[in-house]
Computed example of a mutant assay.
Amino acid sequence: MPQNKVEKGFELLDQCVTLMQGSLNSTFIDSYIEVAGNLVNNYQVQVQDGLPNAETATKLTELYTEFKNLDLAKEERRKVTQLVLLKGTMAEPLQPNHQLTPDSLGFLFVYLAEQLLGDDKRLTLLDLTAGMGNLMMTVMTNLELAGYKVWGTGVDVDDTLLTITALNSQILEQEIQLFHQDSLQNLLLEPSDFAIADLPIGYYPDDENAQNFVTGVAEGHSYAHHLLMEQSMAYVKGGGFGVFLVPSNFLETEQADKIKEWITDKVYLQGILQLPTALFKNKDSRKSIIIIQNHGEESRQAKEVLLADVPSLKDAQQMQQFFKEVSEWKNKNLN
Rank of each mutant, 00 (worst) to 15 (best):
G9I: 04
Q15Y: 09
L24D: 03
L24K: 11
V40H: 02
N42K: 13
Q44E: 12
Q48W: 15
L51E: 08
P52K: 05
E55M: 14
E66M: 09
F67E: 01
N69C: 08
L72E: 01
T81L: 09
V84R: 01
L85V: 03
K87L: 09
K87G: 10
E92R: 11
P93G: 06
L94C: 07
L112N: 02
D119Y: 13
K121V: 08
K121L: 09
K121M: 10
M136L: 15
G147S: 09
V150H: 00
D158S: 08
D159R: 14
T160W: 11
L161G: 00
I164N: 08
S169K: 03
Q170D: 11
E175Y: 11
H180W: 13
L188D: 14
P191G: 00
P200Q: 00
P205M: 06
N209P: 00
L227M: 10
L228R: 02
E230P: 00
Q231N: 09
M233E: 02
V236P: 03
K237E: 10
G240A: 00
G242C: 01
F250R: 05
A256S: 12
T264Y: 13
V267H: 05
G271Y: 06
A278C: 12
Q293W: 03
R300L: 13
Q301G: 14
P311K: 07
S312W: 10
K314R: 15
D315G: 06
M319W: 10
F322S: 03
E325R: 15
S327W: 12
W329T: 05
N331T: 13
K332Y: 11
N333K: 08
N333I: 03
